[in-house]
Write a protein that binds this DNA or RNA. Structure first.
Lengths: 246, 246
DNA sequence: GAGTAAATGTATACCAGGTGCAGAAATATC
DNA sequence: GATATTTCTGCACCTGGTATACATTTACTC
């Protein structure tokens, strides 16, 4: 099978790509709300009706590029080495993405990427679209956790929403800092430290959040990590040693 | 001051209420997407333009009723007894809301409430509006945590997104079960058990989510809570003793 | 209590996103 | 090459939301 995609299929792919590119180009140049779908259609040399046949809504002209990420965490968990805690797999994966400067982590400062990120974060309807991705990611991850680590259903759901929420928070924080001028490389160490702190929080819980007394960082199995870099811009140097590798 | 609201103010309030009631009535009867704002305006005997002066978007005709909940968690934390862990305050608050069958917990089965809940959950644009509330709640709670427990900024943000996400998951789960016919009273015990399980997870972390071996529930300071009711509908009887009261 | 300024409401026209429909054009199949 | 099936197009249309210009009401002042 799949000997040839067929002419029809290839044309569809080309049309899809043409519309998407025209859209992104126009959006980056004039802003999402300043460009109408009619303009996009015209630029892509397609009718408005055809555009909506390829993209169900205007937001999808942007969002379809991130569609893969909806099931990414679930796939990572499923593909992870058995016997390893899913959280460990997920943390390693996130750190890997930071290293790669994957835009999904908010740690990519290529001008194009940065502009696109800003546009999404500044456009309410696009943020709403992202939230739908989040919901989808939660569902998929919950199912993956249930299958691979046979976690009870509710526990899997609760874990999934926490994990997804935390990773988006980390990415949002990185993106915010980059838009304030920090370079990805300068931010990297801090991003790693923050990520490790966040995953440690996920693993060990919010017990630390007691009323007045500061946190007792001596968990059995936690290598006494001191408060990882969160205050301000100063990247606190090299990433500290992995601790909760299980 | 505030001796009298003034005629103008009173009239505004009455108009606001009239529009809102007309909207809810029509929406419940015919569905959100089946009713146009023009119809709502007509039913409320107001011009379309005036309607939009009171409610910036169609979704707000429904969402404004839940606006208070956006800052609820933050207020609870700020008003909580000092010296108590915020998580404890929040858990007690949530359990209290369950007892009261507050619709926000998904545990209210009055037909009107149930229909409204269903309508919201079944209407994508309304779900999106709820997500904006979630984001607002996260921001407010993060700030509250930062102030009251002087938690570092990042930690507060991470904790906030986890807490909000978990509470919405619990509420969603309850609402889902009620729409499958379960009564609020029948669901109550299970809802409490699930909530306690969820808050225990927040406090103690997802360490339990290891690869293969089941969870070691003997934390120092955790009174060895066994797996709280999550599997299916069976409410596992009475709520167990509070453990992590700090 | 009349007169005036400020707020509020209305009517109308308009724009943009999105859909239904009928027919034209292109592709696949024989 | 003829035909059946997709796909594309143009057009009309609906709805949410806004701009403008004008009418009405309320509040304030003398």
């Amino acid at each position: 099978m799949d000997g040839k995609p067929g002419l029809r299929e290839r044309k569809k792919q080309r049309t899809h790509a043409a519309i998407s590119e025209a859209a992104i180009t126009l959006f980056l140049e004039h802003g999402f709300n300043q460009v109408s779908v009619a303009q996009v259609a015209e630029a892509a040399e397609v009718s408005k009706r055809t555009l909506f046949a390829y993209f169900p809504a205007k937001e999808d002209l942007v969002a379809h590029r991130l569609a893969d990420h909806e099931t990414e965490l679930a796939r990572v968990v499923k593909a992870g080495p058995p016997g390893t805690a899913p959280l460990t797999t997920l943390r390693e994966h996130f750190l890997q993405r930071l290293r790669e400067r994957d835009p999904i982590t908010g740690l990519n400062d290529h001008p194009q990427v940065l502009r696109l990120t800003r546009m999404i974060l500044d456009t309410p309807s696009l943020v709403a679209r992202m939230d739908r991705f989040k919901t989808g990611a939660e569902r998929a991850l919950a199912q993956a956790l249930q299958e691979t680590a046979d976690t009870p259903e509710l526990t899997a759901r609760l874990a999934a929403v926490q994990i997804v929420a935390v990773q988006w928070a980390l990415a949002g924080d990185n993106a915010e800092r980059l838009t304030y001028g920090e370079s990805a490389d300068a931010r990297y160490a801090g991003a790693v430290a923050d990520a490790e702190h966040a995953f440690a929080l996920l693993e060990n819980g919010l017990r630390q959040l007691t009323g007045s007394d500061s946190w007792p960082s001596d968990q059995p199995g936690d290598a006494g990590r001191s408060s990882a870099g969160q205050s301000g811009r100063s990247a606190n140097g090299s990433a500290m040693s992995r601790s909760t590798l299980r």
